[in-house]
C-alpha cells in the first residue's frame, strides 16, 4: 500500500509536526520508500509466534510508595521556554 499526500498530512497532524505545502511531496515519496522496505514483513509466516515487546522478558518491579525525589521545581523550570509563578505557560486553550 502507498500513502497519498492527504495521508501524510493526517499522520503529520497526529504527530503534531507541521509539514508545509512545499515539503509534502518529498515527505510522501520518502515515507513510501520506507513503507516499501517494511512491507516485506507481511510475507513472513508468524502464525502462533508470541510478539517480543522487549529484549529481555522481565517483569516490571514495584517499589515502596514513598517520595524519593526532592523538590527542584526552580531548576527544572529554568530550562522551560515560558514560566510564571511556578507554572508553565501555553497559549489559551479554553475561551
Amino acid at each position: 500500500m502507498s500513502l497519498t499526500q492527504a495521508d501524510v498530512r493526517r499522520i503529520a497532524r497526529l504527530a503534531r509536526l507541521q509539514v508545509n505545502d512545499t515539503e509534502v511531496a518529498e515527505v510522501e515519496q520518502k515515507l513510501n520508500g520506507i513503507l516499501g522496505l517494511i512491507e516485506q514483513l507481511q510475507a513472513i509466516d508468524t502464525e502462533g509466534v508470541e510478539p517480543m515487546s522487549h529484549a529481555r522478558d522481565v517483569a516490571l518491579r514495584l517499589r515502596e510508595d514513598v517520595a524519593t525525589e526532592t523538590n527542584r521545581r526552580a531548576a527544572f523550570q529554568a530550562v522551560a521556554p515560558a514560566v510564571e509563578d511556578g507554572l508553565y505557560l501555553v497559549p489559551k486553550v479554553i475561551e
Binding site: I38, L41, Q42, I44, T46, V49, E50, P51, M52, S53
Partner: peptide, 14 residues
Amino acid sequence: AYYLKAQKVRRLLS
C-alpha cells in the same frame, strides 16, 4: 499489520 507483526519477527530473529 506493522508493529505487532514486527514484534513477532523480532522473536523469530532472537
